[in-house]
C-alpha cells in the first residue's frame, strides 16, 4: 500500500459516534416501547404498542451490530479490552435481546404461552436496556488494563455507579418509547403514553442529575475538564441547554403536542451523549488509550471509510423510506399473519 498521510481517526470517531448514537436513539425508543408494553392496559393496547415498532425494530437493532463491528474495525484495541471487561452485561444484553426479538413472532403464533412471551418482551427490553446502562457506567469508570488486555475480573463492572447508569438508561429509553407512542397512537392510549412519559421523565431528570454529579467525583480529570477556567464558561451552554430542553419536554408531555415529547426526549439524549463525550475525549479506552492509540491501521480505516461514506447515506435513504411507508398512526391491520 502507498503511504497514507491522511488522518482517518476523526472521520471514524464521527462515524462511530453517530452510529452508536443512532443505535441508542432507534433501539432506545423501541426498547422503551418494550419496557412500557408491560404496563399497557389490555391486549388490544398491547397489540397496537407492539405493532408500532414491529416493522422497524429489526433495522434499529442492526445499528448495534454496526456499532460493535465499527468499533472492532476502527478501534480494535478498545474492542479487545472493553468487551471482555463487560462480559456479563453483554451476555445479559444479548440474551435479553433474543427474548424480546423472538417475542414479536412468538407471542402471536404461540397463543398458549402468550403471557410468557409478553413477559419475555417486556423484561427482555428492560434487562437489555439496564445491561447497556451498566456497560456505559463501566466505560465511564474505566478498566484495569495490562498492556493490550483487560486485566480485571468479569464482575468488576458491577458497582453502585453502574447500577445507577443501568437504571438511568431504563428510564431514558422509557421516555423515548413514550414519546414514540405519543407520536404513533391516539385517544386514550396516547394519554396513557403521556402519563408514563411523565413518570419516566422524572426518573430521567433525577438520573441525569445524579450521574452528572457522581461522574466528576469518580475521575479528577473529568472534574477539571468541566470545572476549570475557562472550560466552565465555555461548557456552561451544555447544562443550560439541557435544563431548557427538560423544561420544554415537561411542558409538551402535559399539553397536546404529538411530536414534541419525542423530539424533546431525543434532544435530552443528544445533550447527555454530548456531555459524556466531553468528559471522555479523547479516550476510547478510559483512562488509558486515546482514539489515536487504539486505532486500526490506516489501510484498514481507509479501505472501510471509502465504502462506508458511500453506503451510509444510501442506508439512511432506504431506511427512511421504510419508515415513511409505515408513517402515521399505527393500525391493527397491517400484519402479514
Amino acid at each position: 500500500m502507498t503511504a497514507l498521510v491522511f488522518d482517518f481517526v476523526p472521520i471514524w470517531t464521527l462515524i462511530l459516534g453517530v452510529g452508536v448514537f443512532l443505535y441508542v436513539l432507534l433501539d432506545g425508543f423501541d426498547l422503551g416501547v418494550g419496557i412500557l408494553y408491560g404496563l399497557a392496559p389490555d391486549r388490544d393496547a398491547r397489540n397496537l404498542v407492539m405493532n408500532s415498532i414491529a416493522p422497524i425494530w429489526d433495522g434499529n437493532e442492526t445499528w448495534l451490530v454496526l456499532g460493535g463491528v465499527a468499533l472492532l474495525a476502527a478501534f480494535p484495541l478498545a474492542f479487545a479490552i472493553i468487551l471482555p471487561a463487560v462480559y456479563f452485561p453483554l451476555l445479559v444484553m444479548l440474551l435479553s435481546l433474543i427474548f424480546r426479538g423472538v417475542a414479536f413472532e412468538f407471542r402471536y403464533r404461540d397463543a398458549e404461552h402468550r403471557t410468557f412471551w409478553d413477559h419475555g418482551f417486556c423484561y427482555g427490553s428492560m434487562l437489555g436496556a439496564f445491561a447497556q446502562g451498566v456497560v456505559l457506567g463501566a466505560f465511564i469508570e474505566g478498566f484495569e488494563i495490562d498492556g493490550r488486555h483487560f486485566a480485571g475480573s468479569s464482575i468488576d463492572c458491577f458497582t453502585p455507579f453502574t447500577f445507577l447508569t443501568g437504571v438511568a438508561l431504563v428510564f431514558g429509553y422509557a421516555l423515548l418509547g413514550a414519546g414514540w407512542l405519543v407520536l404513533k397512537t391516539e385517544g386514550p392510549l396516547q394519554d396513557w403514553a403521556r402519563r408514563l412519559g411523565r413518570v419516566a421523565f422524572i426518573g430521567v431528570l433525577v438520573a441525569i442529575a445524579a450521574v452528572s454529579l457522581w461522574t466528576p467525583l469518580l475521575q479528577p480529570s473529568i472534574a477539571s475538564r468541566w470545572f476549570s477556567w475557562p472550560n466552565i464558561a465555555l461548557l456552561s451552554p451544555v447544562p443550560i441547554a439541557t435544563a431548557l430542553i427538560a423544561y420544554w419536554e415537561w411542558r409538551s408531555l402535559n399539553d397536546r403536542s404529538e411530536v414534541a415529547p419525542f423530539v424533546g426526549a431525543v434532544l435530552l439524549f443528544v445533550m447527555s451523549y454530548l456531555g459524556i463525550a466531553i468528559s471522555m475525549w479523547p479516550m476510547i479506552v478510559p483512562y488509558k488509550y486515546t482514539l489515536w492509540e487504539a486505532a486500526s491501521s490506516e489501510a484498514t480505516q481507509a479501505f472501510l471509510a471509502v465504502g462506508t461514506l458511500f453506503l451510509l447515506p444510501v442506508i439512511l435513504m432506504y431506511t427512511g423510506w421504510s419508515y415513511w411507508v409505515f408513517r402515521g398512526k399505527v393500525r391493527e391491520d397491517i400484519g402479514y399473519h
Binding site: Y318, V325, F326
Partner: peptide
C-alpha cells in the same frame, strides 16, 4: 444487514 432489515419490514407488513 441494513438492506435485509429495511426491506423485510416492507415485505412482511407493507403488502
Amino acid at each position: 444487514f441494513f438492506l435485509e432489515a429495511a426491506f423485510l419490514g416492507v415485505l412482511l407488513f407493507g403488502r
